[in-house]
Simulated assay, not measured.
Amino acid sequence: MTASMPAPVTLESDVVRLEPLSASHVPELFLSGGGDDEVWRWLPATTPHGEAELAKIAAGLIHDRDHVPFAAVLRETGRAVGWTTYIDTPGFAESIEIGWTWYGRAVWRSGVNTSCKILLVDYAFDKLGVNRVQFKTDVLNVRSQAAIRRIGGVPEGVLRRHRRRPDGSWRDTAYFSILDDEWPAHRARLTRAAGPAV
């Protein structure tokens, strides 16, 4: 695992600014994806149907020492459209996980996710000095798995009955990773595909 979780930091590209998640982001985040069952379908919390519910979920992440959460803010509008986090990885040497991610449907397939992942993976390898960035998702979440593969995530296997979903059913979890020496080629490919706006 990492020696300690990184301190909150702000990371920016031409598309998105990742800034430490705070309660002040909640109203915009709720407008972006609160109450949307499809956005929250595979997440580790039930769909928030009010700002107070979303604020409670956000506070849990903000105060959890195993998570460093970021609000994803569109540079063009200055509005928060989702969040993503660094997560501690007990049992894995020099690794960090990127996950607990969601974005409002308005920015799906827009390049926001790729921009966020480039910022977080770059920072993990270049500044945090990790050897491996990990991703995991519900084995039924085909859209998330495709997104992880697109940025270079290599499948590592499936943990069966890894944990309970919010509805109480068992979740099998698919694991992926990117190693430090694999990332430069993936980053170059992603940057070429997206053009100068990444």
Rank of each mutant, 00 (worst) to 15 (best):
residue 41 R to T: 11
residue 40 W to Y: 06
residue 65 R to W: 15
residue 99 G to P: 08
residue 63 H to F: 14
residue 70 F to P: 01
residue 61 L to W: 12
residue 44 P to C: 08
residue 100 W to V: 13
residue 80 A to Y: 06
residue 77 T to H: 08
residue 61 L to F: 15
residue 92 F to Y: 14
residue 76 E to F: 09
residue 30 F to C: 07
residue 72 A to N: 04
residue 38 E to I: 00
residue 13 S to N: 04
residue 83 W to I: 07
residue 67 H to C: 12
residue 89 T to R: 11
residue 117 K to D: 02
residue 42 W to E: 08
residue 29 L to M: 09
residue 62 I to Q: 07
residue 88 D to S: 13
residue 112 V to C: 03
residue 39 V to R: 07
residue 79 R to Q: 15
residue 108 W to I: 04
residue 88 D to H: 11
residue 38 E to M: 06
residue 30 F to M: 01
residue 117 K to N: 02
residue 69 P to R: 02
residue 45 A to T: 11
residue 32 S to H: 02
residue 89 T to H: 01
residue 100 W to S: 14
residue 69 P to V: 00
residue 16 V to T: 05
residue 15 V to Q: 13
residue 44 P to T: 11
residue 68 V to S: 02
residue 61 L to D: 12
residue 110 S to C: 03
residue 119 L to Y: 01
residue 116 C to W: 11
residue 10 T to R: 10
residue 117 K to P: 02
residue 67 H to A: 11
residue 69 P to T: 05
residue 12 E to W: 10
residue 22 S to I: 07
residue 91 G to M: 04
residue 88 D to T: 14
residue 35 G to P: 05
residue 91 G to I: 03
residue 117 K to E: 06
residue 80 A to K: 05
residue 20 P to M: 02
residue 62 I to Y: 05
residue 52 A to P: 05
residue 71 A to V: 09
residue 43 L to F: 03
residue 41 R to F: 05
residue 68 V to C: 10
residue 90 P to E: 02
residue 52 A to T: 11
residue 89 T to E: 10
residue 43 L to A: 03
residue 12 E to I: 12
residue 96 I to G: 03
residue 78 G to P: 10
residue 106 A to L: 02
residue 96 I to Y: 04
residue 64 D to G: 07
residue 63 H to S: 13
residue 89 T to G: 00
residue 84 T to F: 10
residue 118 I to Y: 06
residue 40 W to P: 03
residue 78 G to M: 05
residue 39 V to A: 06
residue 59 A to E: 14
residue 100 W to Y: 15
residue 54 L to G: 09
residue 24 S to Y: 13
residue 64 D to V: 10
residue 75 R to W: 10
residue 86 Y to C: 02
residue 34 G to N: 08
residue 112 V to I: 08
residue 61 L to N: 11
residue 56 K to Y: 15
residue 112 V to A: 04
residue 13 S to V: 06
residue 76 E to M: 10
residue 58 A to N: 07
residue 104 G to T: 01
residue 109 R to Y: 11
residue 36 D to R: 09
residue 84 T to Y: 10
residue 63 H to Y: 15
residue 106 A to Q: 12
residue 12 E to H: 11
residue 44 P to S: 12
residue 22 S to Q: 09
residue 90 P to S: 01
residue 51 E to A: 10
residue 33 G to M: 00
residue 19 E to M: 09
residue 54 L to S: 07
residue 109 R to L: 05
residue 25 H to S: 08
residue 46 T to G: 14
residue 36 D to A: 01
residue 56 K to I: 13
